[in-house]
Write a protein that binds this DNA or RNA. Structure first.
Length: 777
DNA sequence: AGTGCAACTCTTTTT
DNA sequence: GAGTTGCACT
């Protein structure tokens, strides 16, 4: 690891004295708390950063400041976040402030783990050519380890194993039997142990291992820890409220905070935005941080620069119902804006139409589609919006959809790549050896894997070669074809088949990659195309595309396209696999995503994002919040609601349906308790208000009887408000006078307005209340 | 080995 | 209601 040692040798001494002009400039835009956080040094730092409080600015400015003003070597700065998107944004913004930040490690927790394991594979006791198993692969592997389990049962074990790893629990951890969730199935620990053994035999890792294995390696190896203390002098963690136990232990081991390493640790988070408990996030990490690390300085960022005061006050009304908060009140620096709108709608079709209308009408007035985000609790809810948007030709983009990598044809190609990277990958072997059919049945496959285990250190390809002469005629021909394909595609690597991950993801490797790419002009895309051709998958899917009118070949090509930036070499292959395995949510290939499109996104996925106009849909009990009973889960849902509201900069809309189709049944929905918590004061409710909603404002907490709709008592006030001759102001059209009022065929109250500058328009005021204002003279 | 039909579950949320 | 899984049949 010569490179590693080289990097740590040139940490420049801290400079003293005057700030550079550049630094004065970027520090001058900070508020006092932000400034304090940026220049703080000498003890651990906990930044409690409310939504929209400029947290990313603080982190990136701090990185720039440390490098530019404090003489910290950019290589010795590590910053981790939870999503690739956030990591990339942070890196770019840091570079914009300070070019040398390019050399800092700014990545997700998991991709940091992958980097660490490649570089220190030996210390961690694993093969440096590992690839990462996704959840489906884990389930398959559990079934291989314990064949009597059905897929469903195996999935239960898979989920719990993943959770156990988040909690940093191994099969033999005594704590495993102390936690309720691991008590059944009663043989959980045994299956977990079997799985671990089998997983190690494949030479692969799962997601949990990316955190757990680096931690274990550090824990058992003082020399390695020492190395890390020199390698990383500054460690920052973003979204710290969602870190899990394993991540905390990794951070602790990496920083040596308890060992007096002198590493500077800065964590940033917001306890009100902790929304990943189901995935093992441990909110105690942030609540107890100051207790665990004595001398911790706490800085609170409570100035919100994102949302209008109307939006923030709704957010505060909701979150203040939670107990056990560190406590924090956001100040709306932007001042006041439009009042949020709550639409009660008959059913989910109306919900979809309402959103589409809102977007389309605003677009006609020049509002870009990209202003809008549709938020929902579960992925399933996106379907209705998708079809409606397609129909109305509204461009949209779904964030966080795993669809691309879940496609059969994509998984096939990826399995080929994985097997090439790691000949021990049993799951990948099973997937591709007989596809298209080569008469290699499951019995033959199992016997080959068994032989690999017994005689070839799990190398399945070696096992294939050895078993070849002894197989039945059919299987023999199939396996020999298979081996031929393997040989042909492996020859594409040329002489560069040596294993090695020393340079992974470091700047140095990027340069070498760049050189190699230019020299050979060959990229990984070529490998993928060859695999598709030689394996017969191309022909196979061409045939199926014709019959089924699908676009599978296109998808394979798209995968190939996304591999163009990677060199045709072993390292390029591993980098590419890391990239797709650790970033499944983003469609890697930036295939013609319309830059001006509406965002469809789950509430969870919105963390860290912001939009001018936000619609929170499905505000119904049972949808959001999902379960109403458990108070702890309720608090997490409430935090999720808080996250959703605070994504909105200028306009917030909420929709709630009276009836929703679920499963195949019609469900009569109650409106979400969160709507009641928001109160009725700061929100404009339109549509048929359920009695539960109208009654609640008088006695908070008592949500009233279940009920759908009251007779519409609200239409009268509206009619009274918009009378002929009234002067109004419309956000899009400006000032005008109501020249006529009508009742439509559907019984809706309509007005005709003559605008000073926009001609004559007709409206249904009920649906325009957010844009319409009566002007008092 | 591959096809077709019947029965079942499923809705959290994701690196 | 749909998509998936498992079984039985060819």
């Amino acid at each position: 690891m010569a490179i590693e040692d080289e990097i740590i040798s040139d940490i420049t001494a801290p400079q003293s004295g005057e700030l550079s002009e550049h630094a004065k400039e970027y520090l001058s835009v900070l508020n006092p708390e932000q400034y304090e956080a940026v220049v703080h040094e000498g003890s651990p730092l906990l930044i409690l950063a409310g939504a929209g409080s400029g947290k990313t600015r603080v982190i990136t400015t701090k990185i720039a400041y440390l490098i530019g003003e404090k003489g910290v070597n950019p290589h010795s700065i590590l910053a981790v976040t939870f999503t690739k998107k956030a990591a990339n944004e942070m890196h770019e913004r840091a570079i914009a402030l300070e070019a040398r930040a390019e050399f800092s490690q700014i990545k997700t927790f998991h991709s940091f783990g992958a980097w660490f394991l490649r570089v220190y594979a030996e210390d961690a006791g694993i093969d440096p050519n590992f690839t990462v198993y996704d959840d489906d692969d884990v389930v398959s592997l559990i079934q291989k380890a314990e064949p009597k389990l059905t897929k469903k049962e195996a999935a239960v074990y898979a989920r719990k194993i993943s959770l156990a790893k988040d909690y940093c629990l191994l099969p033999d951890s005594p704590e495993l039997s102390m936690r309720e969730e691991f008590l059944n199935p009663t043989d959980f620990a045994e299956v977990y142990a079997l799985y671990e053994k089998r997983l190690r035999a494949t030479g692969n890792v799962d997601f949990g291992d990316l955190i757990l294995l680096p931690y274990l390696a550090l824990k058992e190896n003082a020399a390695l820890r020492e190395k890390m203390y020199h390698r990383f002098r500054v460690i920052m963690v973003d979204e710290y409220q969602d870190s899990n136990v394993a991540q905390f232990k990794l951070l602790e081991a990496l920083s040596g905070l308890s060992e007096g390493s002198g590493t500077y640790v800065c964590v940033v988070g917001d306890d009100d935005q902790s929304i990943y408990k189901f995935r093992g996030a441990e909110i105690q990490n942030i609540l107890n941080f100051p207790k665990i690390f004595s001398g911790t300085k706490i800085v609170r960022l409570e100035s919100n620069y994102r949302s209008t005061s109307e939006i923030l006050s709704l957010a505060d009304n909701v979150i203040s119902n939670n107990s056990g908060r560190l406590g924090k009140t956001l100040r709306a620096e932007r001042g006041s804006g439009k009042i949020p709108v709550l639409a009660f709608l008959p059913n989910q079709d109306d919900e979809v139409h309402f959103c589409a209308d809102l977007i389309q009408k605003s677009h006609e007035m020049g509002v870009p589609y990209a202003d809008w985000a549709i938020l929902y609790r579960t992925n399933a809810q996106s379907l209705g919006f998708e079809s409606e948007f397609v129909r109305k030709k509204i461009p949209y983009q779904i964030v966080g959809s795993l669809k691309f990598y879940e496609r059969e044809e994509v998984k096939d190609i990826v399995a080929w790549l994985e097997l090439l990277a790691n000949h021990k990958n049993e799951i990948a072997f099973h997937r591709i050896v007989n596809k298209p059919a080569r008469s290699v049945g499951s019995k033959t496959q199992d016997s080959i894997v068994e032989t690999a285990r017994l005689s070839f250190q799990n190398d399945i390809i070696a096992s294939c070669r050895e078993r070849l002469p002894k197989l039945s005629a059919k299987a023999k021909s199939g396996i020999s074809q298979f081996l031929e394909i393997i040989d042909e595609v492996e020859s594409l690597f040329g002489e560069d088949t040596t294993a090695g991950g020393e340079l992974a993801n470091d700047v140095v490797s990027e340069h070498t990659d760049e050189l190699k790419k230019r020299e050979s002009k060959q990229t990984l895309a070529k490998l993928i195309e060859e695999i598709a051709k030689k394996s017969g998958l191309l022909a196979y899917y061409e045939e199926r595309d014709k019959e089924e009118h699908t676009f599978r070949v296109e998808n394979m090509q798209e995968l190939a396209n996304s591999a163009v930036p990677y060199p045709l070499a072993r390292q390029g292959l591993l980098d590419f696999l890391d990239n797709i395995q650790l970033d499944r949510t983003l469609s890697t290939s930036e295939e013609e995503i319309n830059p001006d499109s509406v965002t469809l996104i789950t509430l969870h996925n919105t963390k860290g994002l912001e939009f001018n106009r936000v619609v929170m849909t499905g505000m119904e009990e049972g949808v959001f919040p999902r379960n109403g009973d458990d108070e702890e889960e309720m608090e997490e849902e409430r935090r999720l609601c808080y996250v959703g509201i605070t994504r909105a900069k200028n306009e917030l809309y909420l929709t709630s349906c009276a009836v929703r189709r679920m499963y195949g049944h019609i469900e009569y929905m109650k409106c979400s308790p969160f709507l009641l918590e928001m109160g009725t004061e700061g929100i404009k409710a339109i549509g048929h208000k359920p009695s539960r909603y109208t009654n609640s404002s008088f006695h908070g907490g008592d949500y009233g009887e279940r009920g759908l709709s009251h007779p519409d008592v609200e239409s009268d006030p509206i009619k009274r408000k918009y009378t002929r001759g009234t002067k109004i102001f419309h956000d899009d059209y400006g000032y005008g006078i109501i020249v006529n009022t009508t009742i439509t065929d559907e019984g809706e109250f309509g007005i005709t307005v003559s605008f000073e500058n926009s001609g004559i328009k007709r409206f249904l005021p009920k649906y325009q209340e957010s844009q319409l204002m009566v002007v008092k003279e």
